[in-house]
Amino acid sequence: MLLTTTINGRKKEILIKDDDYLLDVLRKEGYLSVKRGCDTGACGLCTVLLNGSPTLSCSTLAARAQGKQISTIEHFPVEAKKFASFMTSEGAEQCGFCSPGFTLTVIAMIKELQNPTDDEIMHYLNGNLCRCSGYVSQLRAIRNFMEEIKNENC
């Protein structure tokens, strides 16, 4: 099957098998920031944005991306760097393994939710597992990052 899709703003045609998962296709294409974790869709390491929505690529058949836009963390260098600085300033340093999927989820959340409560943020991030930092410091970093983005857009 020929998969025609757009990855990080570039149109691609990729020969895939019917049972290929999006994670495997992306990694074969060189998008190594898309990590393999649990292979069950439970950890969030493999998160990409599919038409702007967080999608677990380890449990999504590549064929479902036909005609759609896929974004990996490489598509958001400015936002990722800025978010990383907020994480560091709040003591939410991470080993980096979960960072791409976590950051993509935060970027999608900011575009989707207006002034979310802490509970709404935690619900949106459900499934993004981090073993290095406490979620309290991450929540502070997300709140501060969202405030900064809101102020920039005013």
Rank of each mutant, 00 (worst) to 15 (best):
F83D: 00
A84E: 07
T60E: 00
K81V: 10
A80M: 09
G67A: 11
K68Y: 01
S89I: 01
F86H: 00
V48P: 00
E79P: 01
A84F: 02
A80K: 10
T55L: 05
C95K: 08
G96Q: 09
S57V: 01
L49D: 04
F76Q: 10
G52H: 07
V78K: 14
L56S: 12
F86P: 08
K82E: 13
I70Y: 05
Q69V: 15
F83Q: 01
T88W: 09
A62R: 00
I70P: 06
E74H: 11
S85T: 14
S59R: 12
S59D: 00
V48Q: 06
K81S: 14
S89K: 14
L50A: 06
T55H: 07
A62M: 00
E79S: 07
H75L: 08
T55Y: 02
K81F: 06
T55N: 07
G96D: 04
L49T: 03
E93R: 10
G91A: 12
S59E: 12
E90S: 15
V48L: 01
L61M: 13
E90C: 15
E90R: 11
A62T: 05
A62D: 02
Q66I: 03
G52Y: 07
I70E: 02
N51T: 08
H75A: 15
I70D: 07
S57I: 06
S85L: 13
P77A: 01
S71H: 11
S59A: 12
S89R: 14
E90P: 03
G52V: 04
C58F: 09
H75P: 05
R64Y: 14
S59T: 15
Q94C: 13
F97D: 09
G52R: 10
L61Y: 03
T55F: 04
P77F: 03
